[in-house]
């Protein structure tokens, strides 16, 4: 039956963020030892600036993974929103362009919800498919708007790249966002149901949960979060393209997994994901500084993620 956990692992599974925080500190110390003086106010602000979009996109993965799902269309949704917004600004003006641009992300989320809850397609396949469909649609859309050109609004650039009192402005978006997700996951009915469905969908049904309602809401919400991430990211990069956020998709999955969220559902939370995003960002910097070829860097990055995840799961008795 169940394996009896040791005292250490029980403590760690009660406070799962402690080992992650320690790992983050170790990485920062290693960086400072490798290149003394690098860890300064400017570096910290830069790290946070790049970790925030990753952490936001990873919120899509965390929330869906709590139910045992995943959102592989999140990267595309973010890209679509950023591209639609930038191309609609010359036509509609900034506020309306932002509002209109979020519509495709919500539509993608509802399509995901439909496939997963009603047709019972596995989330991995469903969201992958939705992502591919949306990419195709975006290419068609591009033909029609090629003349209008694209504009990244000043406000988004300010949010994405600006700093106030040494801290990145994107914190003004991220802190309330993170607080909301952290609160929602434990202290709202919706959040609890995500854990419930991920632990035992049948039991949730028997307790009266209409799971399709949860899936539709969840994947639509994931689309909206991805869309907002896309808006922030295009403000950071300032150049919309047809694959803007797509490369961040797999790191966003990695951030959630490194942060201790189980891909099988029912365990984890957004707190770990934020640390996971910071860990991945710092690790990226660290590997850039080490004088090794690009390919080897990728190999190390992957191996470290695997090792961290394996050790962490063992420590918190998730096997």
């Amino acid at each position: 039956m169940t394996k009896e956990p040791s005292r250490l692992s029980r403590a760690l599974s009660d406070y799962p963020l402690i080992p992650l925080t320690l790992l983050l500190v170790v990485l920062v110390v290693a960086l400072e030892l490798l290149r003394p003086g690098i860890v300064n106010e400017r570096w910290i602000a830069n790290t946070i600036k790049f970790a925030i979009p990753l952490a936001m996109l990873a919120a899509c993965q965390t929330l869906t993974m709590l139910t045992g799902g995943i959102d592989l269309s999140a990267g595309v949704a973010a890209t679509v929103v950023a591209f639609v917004m930038a191309t609609q600004v010359p036509v509609l003006g900034v506020p309306l362009a932002i509002a209109v641009s979020l519509i495709p992300a919500i539509a993608m989320g509802l399509l995901n919800g439909f496939g997963i809850a009603i047709c019972r397609v596995h989330p991995l396949i469903m969201t992958l498919g939705t992502g591919l469909v949306a990419t195709g649609c975006l290419q068609v859309y591009q033909r029609f708007v090629i003349a209008s050109g694209s504009v990244v609004p000043e406000s988004l650039a300010w949010l994405g790249t600006g700093r106030t009192l040494g801290l990145p402005n994107s914190l003004a978006l991220f802190l309330p966002f993170a607080a909301l997700i952290l609160l929602a996951q434990r202290q709202t009915g919706f959040g609890r149901l995500l854990y419930a469905i991920g632990s035992n969908e049948g039991a949730a049904r028997l307790s009266g949960v209409r799971t399709w309602q949860v899936y539709f809401t969840l994947y639509a919400l994931s689309g909206v979060i991805a869309g907002i991430t896309g808006l922030l990211y295009v403000g950071l990069i300032k150049a919309p393209s047809l694959s803007l956020v797509n490369p961040m998709l797999l790191p966003s999955v990695a951030a959630a997994v490194v942060g201790g969220t189980s891909i099988f559902g029912g365990r984890g939370g957004y707190g770990g994901t934020i640390l996971g995003a910071l860990i991945l960002t710092v690790l990226g910097t660290l590997l850039t500084l080490v004088q090794i070829p690009e390919g080897a860097r990728g190999v190390f990055f992957g191996l470290i993620i695997l090792a961290v995840t394996a050790i962490y799961m063992r420590l918190t008795n998730q096997t």
Binding site: L183, Q187, T188, G189, F190, R192, L193, A196, A203, A204, S207, G208, V209, R210, Q213, T217
Partner: peptide, 14 residues
Amino acid sequence: ALPLLARLRNWGPI
């Protein structure tokens, strides 16, 4: 607490 939260109207803050 699970059945207390199942209905749509109980999805908000607990």
